[in-house]
């Protein structure tokens, strides 16, 4: 799954990149988007990763509560899968063991694993390798309730503006609103794995997604930050109930190589 995610984008992402090329009108922006199409083609045909930053492996494990694991440590099994995928797939090893001492683990482990319990007897595994050009431009804002929807818009647009060319636009913007400090960040990450053609379930959130996307694309940042109409391909927002005193907002920015693969067992 690590190898697949790093060489092939999901159909919705491919479609979004083709649409971006049709919509773009700046010559430089068009050229960038054309070269990104060519890059995707070469990646798939020659089995060269789409981007050299093959990411830190983020794994979402949805585990049916009827499922029982036997014969070893599940965490270690996941890391072994990442180890094999990154070694056998000629993917870059980008993980350092200690954030301050910074010695490379040389097999891209450990992964960042999020476990969620779900009803039933199924296990859904999502592998989402995350590059750090865009990860570094992501933000958490702890807003006051009085700042309301305008505060949320301002937070998202500020994060996108600051990210600019660094985050390899055209980007996908994942937003988490509500919950606690860590919950909104996780929502934002999860939002990046949602099909780009699907809007948020609630009407007011879907309207917010559309407004933010339009305003981001009016920024002029454009493909590769070199100017143009297409700065983002989608804004995906996930929400969760929150505390009477708070309005947490997380903005997780992803570059045009928004990778995720899901398998169910």
């Amino acid at each position: 799954m690590c190898i697949e995610a790093n060489h092939f984008l999901s159909p919705d992402m491919r479609e979004a990149l083709s649409d971006a090329l049709k919509r773009e009108d700046s010559p430089l922006g068009k050229q960038v988007l054309t070269e990104l199409q060519e890059n995707l083609k070469i990646a798939g045909e020659d089995m060269i990763p789409i981007c050299q930053d093959t990411g830190m492996a983020v794994i979402f494990m949805e585990i049916g509560q009827e499922v029982h694991f036997e014969g070893g440590d599940l965490n270690e099994a996941i890391n072994e899968g990442v180890r094999q995928g990154y070694t056998e797939g000629y993917l870059r090893k980008s993980v350092v063991k200690d954030p301050l001492i910074r010695e490379n683990t040389k097999d891209n482990t450990p992964a960042v694993v999020h476990f969620m319990m779900i009803p039933g007897n199924q296990v859904n595994i999502t592998v989402a390798p995350k590059g750090f050009g865009s990860e570094n431009m992501s933000r958490v804002f702890m807003l006051k309730p009085a700042e309301g929807i305008e505060g949320v818009k301002n937070a998202v647009l500020t994060a996108v503006k600051d990210a600019g060319p660094n985050a390899c636009p055209p980007m996908v913007v994942g937003v988490g609103i509500g919950g606690t400090f860590e919950k909104c960040a996780l929502l934002a990450k999860k939002a990046l794995t949602r099909d780009l053609n699907k809007n948020a379930g609630e009407q007011h959130i879907a309207a917010l997604e559309k407004e933010l996307l339009d305003r981001i694309n009016a920024s002029g940042i454009g493909p590769a930050g070199l100017g143009g109409l297409v700065t983002a391909m989608a804004v995906n927002i996930e929400t969760y109930p929150t505390h009477i005193a708070g309005l947490p907002v997380a903005v997780n920015i992803c570059c045009h190589v928004n990778r995720h693969v899901t398998r169910s067992i």
């Binding site: 960038v32 990104l36 060269i48 789409i50 930050g225 570059c255 190589v257």
Partner: peptide, 8 residues
């Protein structure tokens, strides 16, 4: 600038 994410 080279195009970010066009490594292949």
């Amino acid at each position: 600038a080279a195009i970010g994410g066009a490594g292949a």
